[in-house]
Design a protein around this nucleic acid. Structure first.
Lengths: 114, 114
DNA sequence: TTATAATATTCTTTTATTAGAATATAGTTA
DNA sequence: TAACTATATTCTAATAAAAGAATATTATAA
């Protein structure tokens, strides 16, 4: 039950759903996600942590960058099923399509200084 | 997006998930649900409203009783898919099995006076 | 070693959610 | 009609979530 609730809660926030939908297209670092969502960096980090603890995303460090990517949800049947469905769910949502359209122009080289 | 979030939120609370799992076994009135969950009647009503607005349950009035039952989630693909999955999900959850086991003994004739 | 950059964590405020108690409503029966 | 019962709604308090600002951490480069 606990894990089920955790997965459901993780996907009950629109910013987190947006993160998932973006990561379906490419692996992204925190500053790219911040730029895309236009929210404070600390919030991006916190949302990512919630998604990670639900077993929905994972990350690899690359120098200063931390690159987040989707897991297959192997950690739980709930995560797995929902991640599968979310590949086609919300594809026509206006907010999502707008976000995805902007995605190619959000590049860490332009946003961060390194 | 809005409807998706609504469905996810509706299923992000353990009392509401319990209601869904119980309704898989039989149609139930508010006082039976209250007895099963051991929470205030007003809370049961409020949880039922949230489930209803997410398109997960519906009700039919029968005199003083209001009988709640599961919909097939026809209202949205999210509701439909999750309701389908919830038929087998959490079947082995200790809290749920305990609850379902008690279900046959929770009868409105015994609980309410009428 | 110092400085800098990307991310995580902490602190604080605001907003939502959940809860029970009290009250209102609607249907039933005396 | 008046009294009663099941449910819904309102009110208020407690708890949890989400937000941004500020600070801490970690890795890199000067």
């Amino acid at each position: 039950m606990k894990n089920f609730i955790k997965v459901m809660k993780a996907l009950s926030d629109s910013n987190r759903v947006k993160i998932v939908k973006m990561l379906q297209h490419k692996l992204m670092c925190v500053c790219e996600l911040r730029e895309a969502l236009q929210i404070a960096q600390s919030n991006v980090s916190k949302h990512l942590k919630i998604l990670e603890e639900a077993g929905l995303v994972d990350y690899k460090k690359d120098g200063l960058w931390v690159n987040y990517y989707l897991t297959d949800g192997r950690k739980s049947p709930y995560a797995s099923s929902l991640m599968g469905n979310l590949r086609h769910w919300l594809e026509d949502d206006p907010e999502i399509t707008e976000l995805i359209k902007r995605l190619p122009h959000i590049r860490r080289e332009d946003i961060c200084k390194k």
